[in-house]
């Protein structure tokens, strides 16, 4: 089955990014495909390359990058939401791309299920 994922909250502040990640990993392990993860609202902060968590904590941003690397998951950050919150190509982590909201609608059209993780 084809899943698309919408992440509406930033990393660390809220559990949504963790739940979305663990759901995605499990879906991939089960042989489903995750075509796109769309980051909206404060969710765009998941893509900041300036993130530096303490050594003993999970690195949420790197975890997403690794997903893109290893599974070809398309990580799309909403441009309008990103610019509002200071995310630009200059500080965009590897594996992410900035694009329009149309990418979210397109993901909803193409996927069998769209999962929303937020606050």
């Amino acid at each position: 089955m084809k899943f698309a994922i919408l992440v509406n909250e930033g990393p660390y502040q809220h559990q949504a990014a963790d739940t979305a990640y663990l759901f995605t990993r499990s879906a991939l392990e089960k042989g489903h495909s995750i075509d796109r993860i769309f980051f909206y609202h404060d969710g765009v902060n998941n893509s900041s390359s300036l993130t530096e968590p303490p050594q003993d904590d999970r690195n949420i941003v790197e975890r997403w990058t690794k997903l893109a690397d290893e599974h070809g998951v398309d990580l799309v950050v909403c441009v309008a939401a990103a610019l509002r919150r200071g995310i630009k190509d200059d500080n965009l982590a590897k594996g992410f791309r900035i694009s329009g909201l149309g990418q979210l609608i397109e993901a909803g059209i193409q996927a069998d299920r769209l999962m929303v993780f937020g606050d």
Binding site: Y40, G100, L101, G102, L104, I105, E106, I109
Partner: peptide, 8 residues
Amino acid sequence: VVLIAAAF
């Protein structure tokens, strides 16, 4: 989102 969705 809704305004963008309208175009689809």
